[in-house]
């Protein structure tokens, strides 16, 4: 059979041309894929097991097998040392995800049902995806800093002269966590709303009509018809979101910059996440000037960390997917 195909390709000029065209057109994308997905992933694994050792007498470094040094470093210097950042990431995700998801589904349902001003709300909810999160973060930061201080001062004292007594919603130790969470939830409707409302618009009208004939109200229709029927979309977006638990910076870079400027030690302990920390570490290994001041982790150690997180996240992703399919809502 294989022989026939081969002889066909050789003897049939049309098939041969087709194959040549196929190979030529696919060459660049395939090379790109090999480099930036296959090679990069293998390189990450390779670097996890090796460390760079300075050559004696000449400039340069050699790669030396160093298992389990990098992983020991990851455990002691990253996971144990920064366990509170991992805790913050998990805590923020546990609060952020259910609230955002619930609001996204309810708003999408409102838009799908084409209730008053749904077109206008659709545009408004898309704004955070359209305009850079950096723009919203900077404006939110300034308004919550300067504006909040003035507002609190007016409420408490009746004039703005006491404004300096307050630190601002995003900087006060007591409100910083709330401020970051509000910003994150507020900013993440955009594309997901369009996805969910798009999926809901594919629901068969006859199902919805029969639901109403059975006496269902809107909340029952939402819960027993709309959510189960868009469940595959919900699972896909949930999985994407879980993948980013330990990568998610929760907007800290946009809100405060890399130094988390203006935050007290206590405030930093409340909001700093693992995603933010590792993002900055990666940035630092690309900057020679940063290295002059010394870096906390080498590239190999960061790769080892990435490998560890991947090995943790993969079972979580598949486990959650399995549970959602098994115990998730059913249309029946």
């Amino acid at each position: 059979m294989e022989k026939t195909v081969k002889s066909n390709i050789i003897n049939n000029p049309r098939l041969r041309n087709k194959l040549i065209f196929y190979v030529l057109m696919l060459a660049l994308p395939f090379i790109q894929l090999c480099l930036f997905y296959v090679y990069v992933n293998f390189s990450t694994i390779y670097m996890s097991f090796f460390k760079m050792v300075e050559r004696v007498g000449v400039l340069g470094f050699d790669m030396q097998f160093a298992f389990p040094d990098n992983f020991v470093h990851v455990w002691n210097e990253i996971i144990v040392e920064h366990a509170w950042k991992i805790g913050n990431s998990a805590k923020m995700y546990a609060i952020d995800f259910p609230i955002a998801l619930t609001l996204q589904l309810i708003f999408s349902y409102y838009i799908y049902k084409k209730y008053p001003m749904s077109g206008f709300f659709k545009v408004i909810l898309y704004m955070p995806a359209l305009i850079s999160s950096l723009v919203f973060a900077i404006l939110f930061n300034r308004l919550m800093y300067d504006g909040y201080m003035e507002l609190r001062s007016i409420i408490d004292f009746g004039d703005t002269s006491h404004a300096g007594d307050y630190e601002g919603f995003l900087y006060d130790d007591n409100t910083v966590f709330l401020g970051v969470m509000v910003f994150n939830i507020w900013c993440q409707f955009g594309v997901n709303i369009l996805m969910y409302s798009g999926a809901m618009s594919g629901i068969d009208e006859s199902i919805v009509e029969s639901c109403h004939l059975d006496g269902c109200n809107l909340i029952q229709e939402f819960w027993y018809i709309s959510v189960p029927l868009i469940f595959p979309t919900l699972i896909a977006l949930t999985i994407t979101s879980i993948t980013g638990i330990f990568n998610n910076q929760f907007g800290l870079l946009s809100l405060y910059g890399e130094q988390l400027s203006g935050l007290s030690q206590e405030a930093v302990r409340k909001v700093n996440t693992m995603g933010f920390y590792m993002y900055l570490q990666t940035k630092r290994i690309t900057d020679l000037r940063e290295q002059l001041y010394g870096i906390e982790h080498t590239a190999s150690e960061l790769c080892a960390y990435g490998l560890c997180v991947t090995l943790v996240v993969i079972p979580i992703v598949f486990g959650v997917r399995h549970l959602l399919y098994k115990y998730g809502p059913s249309v029946d």
Binding site: V40, N41, T44, M47, A299
Partner: peptide, 11 residues
């Protein structure tokens, strides 16, 4: 999902 590939990408 794969996480932490930025250093290898930069390299």
């Amino acid at each position: 999902p794969t996480v932490g590939t930025q250093p290898a990408t930069v390299k």
